[in-house]
Design a protein around this nucleic acid. Sequence first.
DNA 1: TAAATTTTGTGACAAATGTCAATTGAAACC
DNA 2: GGTTTCAATTGACATTTGTCACAAAATTTA
Lengths: 193, 193
Amino acid sequence: MMHEVKNFFDYLAQYISLDDQTFENAIDFLKVEAICKGEYLVHEGQICSKIAYINEGLFRIYYLKEGNEINTCFCKENTITSSFNSFINQVPSNEYIQALENSMVVTLSAGHLEKLTRESATWQTVRRLLTENECLRLSDRASSLSFESALVKYKNLLKYQPEIIQRVSIQHIASYIGVSRETLSRIRSQIRE
Amino acid sequence: MMHEVKNFFDYLAQYISLDDQTFENAIDFLKVEAICKGEYLVHEGQICSKIAYINEGLFRIYYLKEGNEINTCFCKENTITSSFNSFINQVPSNEYIQALENSMVVTLSAGHLEKLTRESATWQTVRRLLTENECLRLSDRASSLSFESALVKYKNLLKYQPEIIQRVSIQHIASYIGVSRETLSRIRSQIRE
DNA sequence: TAAATTTTGTGACAAATGTCAATTGAAACC
DNA sequence: GGTTTCAATTGACATTTGTCACAAAATTTA
């Protein structure tokens, strides 16, 4: 088994106990893919056909609003990324998923997950947990976007996702926390003093 | 069968075909409850022990931030409400669910849903759909909170949830869209002209 | 290494929004 | 019906943030 796949199973095992059968059911469906910096996992208009476990690397999810890119999520190694709405409902995605670093992912197609879900209670649970995690993330994001000053939002990011600040450019972070890049720049210089 | 329960099953049947067995498995677990205006379905600090199908009425979900109430959701008849994170993970809720009108709900406890989920693929799917719906809602909310002016946020509410504006006080709506009530008041008078 | 490109930082100013205070309006209660 | 209480509006002003323009710094490319 490739070590990327092993890492994926280890990741899942955090949430649920995976027996040998569960492993075997899935292993033929998994694909290890390299995605270079700047390349896309999902394009707008495409139906998101797979979920991706990130073994190594970093992605951003963004959509376009009046020509501007709005980042909604940064996904780093040892997490799962997908254009959630598109994947679940198999409708065209309104967002892009782009690699910010050279990355290595393990993908599982919607069809294969569907099949696994039908055949195995464990995979059914895996799918549910993925969804529930997504909910919690979205709920945190919604609450951090409302009623926080730009300063507080940035400090929260520093506190809870310091790695992101190291690895992602300021302009991307600005749109993630919902302020202009100039404002974020000023906040940073203010904090430095 | 009480008509409230029947409405609940009709609601579920929109999403999935429920056979007789599925009905019967659940019917003893369901409780019809009246909740008066101002009363609470869930209190902060409590573990949210149930989901509630709203047969009639209106609720708001809010949490406290520095003493201020922040509304995150309005739930009206023919939807399901719950303190999602608390219910799913059975951890104390950081939010309140309060009736804004005299309401009638059908509740199902976490334990009973767990039991149904274990025993029936249909209920497993019901649970998944509930979660996925919650995700979509949260995702819409996050995107409407970021990078929209107060005016646009209010217009979106008018467009997509006009009923809420009819039934909910301005102060609650203001905190829902993330502006002060004075600002919202000014926006409204501006639109009127 | 040098040139070109992209990203980040700053100043100046305008626009949007928050805050506080006072007033008006509406709903609830006696 | 009148009083009381709470909700909504409005004005004045301060603060925050966005926008535009340009400079500095960093990164990429040739």
